[in-house]
Design a protein around this nucleic acid. Structure first.
Lengths: 387, 387
DNA sequence: TTATGTATCGGTAACGTTTGCGAACACGTT
DNA sequence: AACGTGTTCGCAAACGTTACCGATACATAA
């Protein structure tokens, strides 16, 4: 039945076991082992096929290098051939294959960004800013969202690494205490810029708002409006923004000779849930505070809701200041006094910084920290007189 | 000085012009033209180098195919060699190169999503939902944001095409009237799922909220609460969601025998700016409406602010209902009645649908439309009795 | 002529993976 | 020692692009 693939004879063939489930044959004459190759699945080849440079080249009878050059305005190409190639490219609806391009150039023109969440306005705004300047520099942005989970954050960064992003923008989750997944970028000479959620130790490039000055201004404002027992509902203590906002709070108190009472400082984790618990605790104290400076707006809003439920009048009995100027802040009650952060600008600054690093500027310079000013926005929740 | 690269003789060599700025030589004996090759930039090779399969293979003295198979649990590999390879992979901190992988498999395991904006909560929520189910199926999500601009939308889709995404999720900008950039995906057999912002004509897979029912419920609710002259601040007329919400508005009026007054229906474009202009127009009419059903919450909120400025009491003199249940809606005034959309579920449904398409299920089935129910959330802005 | 230069184009080795199929052994059985 | 059967591994071709060199065919200057 079956002829030998070498000598073609049938009589000298015999079965010789199995390889990967396929019958193996042995020809006694040739002393040659072989299995029957799978019938090529034809028509599957031409199934899902994006037109490539080779298609254009073959259609026109030129080499693919000529096509590649023509598509990139290389001077070595005759204007006529160039035109023919460009026309053919349009005719065949050619779209360049970024994957192959990136593979040979070992550059993807993509930078990754990982943010903890999407549910407040902050990070989307940062992304809009970053995307604007990156697009202009012909870079793509690969957006990842960790959901405040260390585990997904690691998975995210691994995916970005596998996709060979040229750079990384990071605002880390509040769970994150191990930074190896970030350091593995720097180990590969892939520039990393941290923004907003940064930690003290990592000696690298950062973009942050001036949390200290913002917090200081907020608490000073409370003091100047006659509040005397000012509490602070803080963020996760490992994050620099928490530390800086706490420091601003403390310095403002110190400046005006107010005592620093440890019982009036509680660290939360940015969530409304914890804010509820700790806010409750504060308001239920024997000597409750007459003002609360919250680490962010969701926390402050929770406090406002709590006060409303308890019949505590805002701002007469309790002054409240938040942080980040969420769009909700305008509409809530008589308005929530808060510290406005330059969200979009943070994104823009981070993007510009990483573009500079990619261009090799400040290659061996010391890590740069860009601080953008935050602005106190005074509304109804902190003006005793207007109450 | 310089010997011929062919015969090695020095005496028969002479200069022969320049090629690309480099000196060309000519050997009279060999009649051979040549230029001196550039000295290989060494040490640049080892500069930015990610460890590859080949590195592992060479370190261990095996072939790269063996390494590849070991990393993928291929049965043909001896457990000992497999272990050695896995250990070495960890030692060298090997991270697979997705680009090369995708190139040979012609599958990126990435699906793209393009949304019009990031500034309301809606799309971030959808993305969270989509990302959740995609990650579980080991797919990555590439997020693009058109900023409501047709031009960037086209650029976005082109970038996704260049990056060879396996599928596309789209909610189009309100500027979009030409759909060629989407059709070019389908032409390449890349599945596309439209969500939320879809248009009637495109006969493809869609995921939408039940805008009609939601709008109907909203307007019916207004009618049952005694409002009689109900206006509608609509969206861009080319989008299906605008059409459906308008239809719900009209059908509800018709059911209760209210007249359909064309002067009470105005089409906006989702922006607060237009909402302000058109809202002003409505409230300044000789016979102003006593209720407004807005196409989305930002529009409704703008109306509320307008009414407050004019001293119009909510809900006694003017009932207002929005659409989408923005987080602000709870906090604004006495609360904004609105229609809550299943945002996260929309993302999940769209992702599941496209995963099914990628698996080749319903390959030749008729385009599927998934409709998720929307729910009326009644708050203070529309309850006359409670006013 | 001879020497020198320009304008265009092709060949080919990379980039890092995957995969079909053959090769080289290592065992038993006869 | 030949035969029969498995196991384990290497070779090499693809995937689509880029870029370094050469190789022509001419043109021009000495």
């Amino acid at each position: 039945m079956i002829p030998c693939v070498k000598c073609g004879r049938v009589e000298s063939l015999m079965k010789a076991g199995f390889v990967r489930g396929k019958q193996r044959f042995f020809c006694k004459d040739c002393t040659y082992y072989f299995t029957l190759p799978n019938p090529k699945e034809r028509s599957e080849r031409r199934g899902r096929h994006q037109t490539t440079i080779i298609d254009i080249a073959q259609d026109l009878g030129v080499s693919n290098s000529t096509v590649s050059r023509a598509l990139h305005n290389h001077p070595d190409i005759n204007p006529n051939t160039r035109k023919a190639i460009l026309d053919k490219a349009i005719e065949l609806d050619y779209q360049p294959n970024q994957l192959a391009h990136s593979l040979v150039k070992s550059r993807t023109n993509t930078i990754g960004i990982v943010v903890p969440e999407f549910l407040t306005q902050f990070f989307p705004n940062v992304i809009v800013g970053a995307q604007r300047v990156l697009r202009q520099a012909d870079y793509n942005l690969m957006i990842m969202q960790s959901g405040e989970s260390y585990e997904t954050e690691v998975a995210n960064t691994k995916a970005l690494l596998a996709n060979r992003v040229d750079g990384l923008l990071v605002s880390m989750s509040h769970e994150t205490n191990n930074y190896d997944h970030f350091l593995s970028f720097e180990k590969r000479d892939i520039p990393v810029v941290y923004f907003n959620r940064v930690i003290e130790g990592l000696g690298t490039h950062k973009v942050v708002a001036n949390d200290y000055r913002g917090a200081f201004a907020a608490v000073e404002h409370l003091i100047l409006n006659g509040y005397r027992r000012i509490a602070h509902l803080g963020g996760p203590p490992n994050l620099l923004i928490s530390q800086e906002r706490l420091r601003g709070y403390q310095e403002a108190l110190r400046k005006y000779g107010h005592p620093l009472l440890p019982e009036l400082v509680i660290h939360g984790d940015f969530t409304a849930q914890k804010a509820l618990i700790y806010g409750q605790h504060l308001l239920d104290m024997a000597q409750p505070p007459d003002a609360i400076f919250a680490v962010n707006d969701p926390t402050a809003i929770e406090v406002l809701a709590l006060a409303k439920a308890k019949g505590i009048r805002i701002p007469e009995e309790l002054g409240v200041v938040g942080f980040s100027d969420d769009p909700i802040a305008v509409h809530i009650g008589k308005g929530l006094t808060t510290v406005k952060q330059p969200t979009t600008q943070i994104g823009e600054a981070a993007a510009k910084l990483i573009l500079g690093l990619l261009r090799g500027e400040q290659a061996n310079l010391s890590p740069q920290t860009i601080v953008l000013e935050a602005e106190l926005v005074v509304r109804g929740s902190s003006i005793k007189a207007a109450g």
